[in-house]
Design a protein around this nucleic acid. Structure first.
Lengths: 194, 194
DNA sequence: CTGGTATTAGTACCAAGTGCTAATCCGGAA
DNA sequence: TTCCGGATTAGCACTTGGTACTAATACCAG
């Protein structure tokens, strides 16, 4: 026996974990045993055949892509918007957004929700964040639903500079506030003439 | 002819785009044509068979998982760190991080890199961002390599409050600066006694 | 030497195809 | 009407990467 059976099966499982695309024949060469032995090993370990493995891996992809798609556009879902005035978005915090160590949401997710809302409310070809001052007031946990409200501060905005205030709440508690100074190409009050 | 060939092929492509798991037989039922017709359609449209489709979809997953893993831990890769003093991380901007409309990186990615670096440099059970003021100085594009440098400002830090300055550069240009006021449980200078 | 485990070999069969040939349908032009 | 041609359908041989099962062989310990 070159390598004890038990050990080979352990390595087999690890190998397929890392690269599920291998056929039994390729595996048999890797471990220097016959194809049949590989099949028996898979049987004993409950490892499905190549096509089944690919199916499950592929379906995980699909789910992942749906997730990343939503994260690509705007962080959070915009539920109400009045261009150049105000907007509201909802962001559901999941286990993916928190530190494992303490279960508190990473700050950049709250920032991302607020920032992308500030961009969305201006709805311009080119709307960029220039400067921002933000405050994390209360920790946010997985399962929390964060509602961000953005309001364009018309008083301070002028020309290509816009000021957007964002306040995020969970229930009736404010968890985050941010002030965003944005740059955009279309000047205030000139949108109709473009 | 129930549905013109051209239109059926268009729908076929769309159908498989949305759900690549369908066999020719299932498709033939959906479109009320024979399996052979489906095969000819796939041939003409250059759509591979089920197994090949799953292979490509599954391989996309593998890449995606590597990506999402890194995005879970720290945004960017930490290349140098001296706890409670300074740290450096590298973040490669890809197409995924930019606005489609103008190719400029979304602000929250730069913030995320800086913020997670500020958290990492403190390396505490509980290190949270309290307040932050940030400036986006130059637009960042896909392909850029952003290097973020975090420095703990010992002078202003005391007790459970720490001040971290982050400066991010692309080449020799500064693209982002941020000041982070952090809260953490372990007090400055007391780490050894815990 | 015998028993039991591990391994290998071989066969029949399956799913989901490719590749090819042949038959059939069906609508419009001569 | 008849004939042509594209579209469709059918059928068959073959391929991959397997499952399920049986049988043979190897090898090691008691």
């Amino acid at each position: 026996m070159r390598v004890p059976k038990r050990e080979r099966q352990r390595q087999l499982a690890a190998s397929l974990e890392q690269n599920p695309f291998m056929t039994d024949e390729e595996l048999s060469k890797q471990f220097n045993v016959s194809v049949q032995t590989i099949r028996l090993d898979r049987l004993e370990c409950g490892i499905p055949e190549l096509r089944e493995r690919l199916k499950t891996v592929a379906s995980r992809t699909i789910e992942a892509e749906v997730k990343s798609l939503q994260s690509d556009e705007v962080i959070g879902e915009i539920v109400d918007i009045e261009l150049d005035k105000r907007a509201i978005s909802i962001f559901d915090v999941t286990e993916d957004h928190v530190f494992q160590r303490n279960g508190i949401a990473r700050g950049h997710h709250l920032f991302a929700q607020a920032n992308s809302l500030a961009v969305a409310v201006l709805d311009d070809e080119l709307a960029l964040t220039v400067t921002s001052t933000i405050n994390f007031l209360k920790p946010v946990k997985a399962g929390d639903r964060v509602i961000a409200r953005a309001i364009v501060d018309k008083g301070r905005s002028s020309g290509k500079r816009m000021f957007v205030e964002v306040m995020s709440t969970v229930g009736d508690e404010t968890v985050f506030t941010g002030e965003f100074q944005m740059y955009h190409t279309t000047e205030l009050g000139r949108r109709d003439t473009k």
